[in-house]
Design a protein around this nucleic acid. Structure first.
Lengths: 131, 131, 131, 131
DNA sequence: GTGGTCTAGACCACC
DNA sequence: GTGGTCTAGACCACG
């Protein structure tokens, strides 16, 4: 698993990295219990301050999607959905509305957005809708 | 048309307001050529510094969705899509991927996301796909 | 690279500076990835408020010709042309017509304008017309 | 001769109109000694404050390209080039450099700029380079 | 150290 | 009245 930082972006490095790790887990490129590179190792690879890497790992651990085992390293945890259904839906709705707003301004039709979403969705790993 | 600011949010005021205005235009709550509140008026209403309002209006004007007529006020412009198809699609794809990543972490299925998108999309004003 | 501000000019400081930076990049005096003076440094050098400098950098970043790496500084970005061919040509045509109007009023002949343009053009760095 | 105002432009109305009149004279659409619409007439046509029209006429009269004959109206005067050759060339050079800077950023080649200039120049009325 | 955000208040241009 | 520009100075995020 390789991470890349785009310094030319306005997005802070720590958030770029956090988003990539979240995305990698969401798409299955990083499996549960898989070990992530150490802080020092990733710091050297990305030419980024070690503090920045440590901060990202800490933040993701607080979110419950990473797990530090002292002396062993940092591992992918199975995300447990702690929020209420209502809270989770609200959060997603806000994000959907932001997407739709930008889509309108970019001149897309609603069908084009739905199509693009369906296409990209195939790259992600979804939970099974239980029997 | 009413705007609301959440000062306790970590999102900067200017971005909260900009997002609301973009959204209001995309959903048709603000029509083309409609006049927005003056800088000073909105500044009083929201209890926000006039410079912050002016900054939002300037940013949206540079994006081409507002236009200023000095001495008269600020108005909603019809967006003209100056960006290349490639640039517009890239921008939307980035946003879609962000949405899908969050959806996975929140424990939604891909069908649920598609459904939510379809539902919210009805609130927006889309371009006609010309005959 | 040195910048100069003419405070007595009717042209706003922020635009004087923005024009100089755009020009410096177009002529190659500022190279891609080159670092610009920090906001505070340039503020001291030009005896101009830091906010004014920051505003210029922000504007040029939105135009895509600068990019900011928080904590590191501001750098020259390689411009990527996101605009459609139509939009770019319209913009240039408007500028050409303005130039020609002024040239006529100043009493130049069209040959003189073409000659001056050719002469000045040698100072700028042009894209290669692909093979 | 018809004038048009673009309120969606950031350019002040008075300057839009002044530029159009200068341009119309430069291209020969307005001939020497031709009468312009009265302040009130143009004010009604463009739906613009009469003060704004009056201001434009006054400014152009100061530049020496219009001529007011009380009781009769406003007429096109023959522009007399009062500036020194050096001053006129400096002014044009600044404008040419601005054009070239924008052209580079828009991704044009120098040949394309020269071609566009030549094409647009045919619409303007140039002084004869008299023997 | 770097830039980002916000406030307060001044003065000017435009209508 | 409107917005545009600039200054001064505070506090925060980022590396």
């Amino acid at each position: 698993m390789e991470f890349r930082i785009e310094p030319s972006s306005r997005v802070p490095i720590y958030r770029q990295l956090a988003d990539q790790i979240r995305g990698a887990i969401a798409t299955g490129q990083l499996a549960w219990d898989e070990r992530l590179p150490s802080v020092r190792e990733l710091s050297r690879t990305l030419v980024v301050n070690p503090n920045t890497i440590a901060r990202v790992y800490l933040e993701l651990e607080r979110e419950g999607i990473l797990n530090t085992r002292p002396g062993l390293g940092v591992f992918v945890a199975r995300p447990h959905h702690e929020l209420t259904k209502r809270a989770r839906r609200d959060r997603l709705t806000r994000r959907v509305d932001g997407l739709l707003t930008e889509a309108v301004h970019l001149g897309f039709t609603s069908a084009e957005v739905a199509e693009l979403l369906a296409e990209r969705a195939t790259r992600f790993q979804w939970e099974q809708s239980g029997p």
